[in-house]
Design a protein around this nucleic acid. Sequence first.
RNA 1: GCCCGCGUGGUGGAACGGUAGACACAGGGGACUUAAAAUCCCUCGGCUGCAAGGCUAUGCCGGUUCAAAUCCGGCCGCGGGCACCA
Length: 875
Amino acid sequence: MSRYDPAVIEPRWQEAWDKAGAFTAKADATKPKYYVLEMFPYPSGRIHMGHVRNYTMGDVVARTKLAQGYAVLHPMGWDAFGMPAENAAMERGGHPKDWTYGNIADMKAQMKPLGLSIDWSRELATCDPEYYGQQQAMFIDMMEAGLVYRKAAVVNWDPVDMTVLANEQVIDGKGWRSGAAVERRELTQWFFKISDYSEELLSALDGLTNWPEKVRLMQANWIGKSRGLQFAFDMVGAPAGFDRLEVYTTRPDTLMGASFAAISADHPLAKALEGNPDVAAFVAECRKGGTSAEEIETAEKIGYDTGIRVKHPLDPNWELPVWIANFILMDYGTGAIFGCPAHDQRDFDFATKYRLPIKPVFSADGSDAPLDEAFVPMKSEKVHYIRGFAGEAVQTGDDGVATAIAHAETNGYGKGVTKFRLRDWGVSRQRYWGCPIPVIHCATCGVVPEDKKNLPIELPYDVSFDIPGNPLDRHPTWRDCTCPKCGAKARRETDTMDTFVDSSWYYARFTAPRSTTPTVMEDANYWMNVDQYIGGVEHAILHLLYSRFFARAMHKTGHLPQKAIEPFNALFTQGMVTHEIYKTTDDQGRPVYHLPEDVTVFNVADRRIVVRGNEPPPIDMIDDVDAFIRALADEGLLVEVIPSAKMSKSKKNVVDPMNIIASFGADTARWFVMSDSPPERDVEWTASGAEAAFKHLSRVWALCSRIGEMPADHKGEGDQDLAKATARAIDEVTKGIEGFAFNKAIASLYAFTNTIAKANASTGPMKEAIRTLAKLMSPMTPHIAESIWTYQGGAGLCAQAPWPKADPALLIDDTVTLPIQINGKRRAEISVPKDMPVAEVEKLALADEDVVRFLAGQPVKKIIVVPGRIINVVV
RNA sequence: GCCCGCGUGGUGGAACGGUAGACACAGGGGACUUAAAAUCCCUCGGCUGCAAGGCUAUGCCGGUUCAAAUCCGGCCGCGGGCACCA
């Protein structure tokens, strides 16, 4: 066997797999199916290490399941609509379509050398009319099913560019291009009625037992079910038609601590008061800045006293002022609240600022002392009500709320209401590079869905990006059309869909990617659901929640079977790939970042030093390390190392996977991203780690050569030990892969490799062991595994060979070593037969000479024996 | 501001509530070599001890338990999300 040369073997095996059609998904009634999917990429043009990690994880699962006898579906596609394509067109000219398809070709060319077991015949791109035409058909179906409507909603408005901005394009409250102060402006927009499914999307989370607990929690909090009291204040001094002010509160037990009422700047009452120039100015002030919750909630809290008063529901003589406040959201509840500063920090800050009363309703011990900050214990905690009006004086917050609601209902001033924080999904985007909303505006018929036979409504190619705004708006021949209902001249909707719509059903499309309907029931029935979905935790809420909603909508409109309404049986959220950042400073003190390949890292006397360039300075004969470092700094060579962060172009802490593949091969890149770090955690890319991975693969290669050259009749003593080690490796690697503990699987493979290298066994068992090693490595490093497999006489392709099974008899040891603790500290250990009864183990433990010495005659109070685990003696 | 997560040697990490540091990287020492690279062997949390060993140690403080990195409460630090980034 020659030298390990990935550049030679990797293309050869990739070709062999292609030729064998090894990864083409084929429905097979005789096999169980397995659908593994990684979140599809946005075609930025370059793959990065995060992609390599994500797709390698999916590939490990897919290859293992294939070996275990499943019919595997492992597809790949492109989340191809979105802003970057338009930005590229604006910055560099060119067309979003050309840019996108060029990027897809580039990225595919970079993914191919990784040797992923992808069925490329199912490839799809969301920007392809074949895909988005079906999405338009479903939009129309959803309109007919009552899941789509229009309403006014606020957007970020750039008053200089006269264009809508994405939250990302609002920086410090200003438009990213114009620099103008952004305003919130209302626009009529299209919405999906995801709120129809609030309760169901929440309760169904309980069934997602193979999802990370944290993702389910985040989704539950996002949906935000709450039980509270809705009631109306009688108003004094309000404009005509505003007799009562509806408010919703989740803490009705704090009603006696009310010190003011506050309404959103978007509240109808605020609008009615805008005749007053002071109010108008204040409301305008509130509308400054972007629409994001982060911006609104971190903005300084400001308020305006309207002069209107409301009467407290429990005391008609008690009046509270009505304020307009910038931190009240119109989207949640009724857009109006009562403020209880004693038990809500935000209200506390507001009350302090505007000198409003702060009256505690309850306290920990029943005292009525003034507060320095809001007292907000958990609702499950018991508190002393000083100003309670319902239920016990000492009760939990939960009970306080329940009795307050009951009190309100009995006395007729309010009622218990369940509300959700989840808002309907606004899908309108005033942008070109997205799926056109298939709707027509007709002067006589109103808003009419396009006739399905006219689908797809394709994006026109002849558009320009030289002026801001949506090019579709100023494209007359595309925009002008005829009404499908009455045939009169009409206008096409120029909004396109949120790209989250595209990614909310691609998993279903993969089951029949070329069909002329969105899905084909037979295929969806066979392949759905996705058995294992893998992607970044940053998608924990929006993408996954939208997909769960969309699957339900697709079921309602006949595009998915009932069983697919929860499309992802198991979810795994992987961590990011990070790298340390190398920084120097230029003459003006501005930071300059350096690519990892443009610096040199070395050690001098236990000090890790990084310098610019590819050559380390001469380091022999250094006796004063500090002086040496100072000298480097004076020459401007010394590089500052900033701790690892997510790889990003702006910080230049990126490693191009293509460079790694070019120097070490795909197997090394794959092995490294799967080793060391647990997959859910961030992994730091280190050059030394990649080299170590390559070294290890070379060692395995050399070991394979050595075994191949063993004389056929060699006999060794260690056959049984090797058989046991093999069984253990099979067991541990299988469990590691199935439990998404790839790092542990790889640790077992290191140990197994070391065992084989040191083993003194006969030739046959040695060959058997290394073939098993190759098969166990093959999900991670498929190419080298094929070479070893073939060299050692394995039948057919390693990729298609069955997964090995561990002989259970070989996994059990006859004797176990039990540590003995005295008062919880490990003091000794004994070796006992694995089935020894507890009483005998106790006797043996107490007779142990170390134990006797430590006990020094003290009486034993208690002895705890955890069979097969540990013994603890308590004195 | 709100929601969620994470924190273990010089580094990445391992550890059904049960021997903290598996497996690696880096470092140190040695073998081979004219030399270097490669390879192989030994060592490797800290303090202490000739040694056997002892003490100490999982961000910080407190609690539950025979036993806590793990469970509970509080704090600190870092990261993700916050509805028009994908």
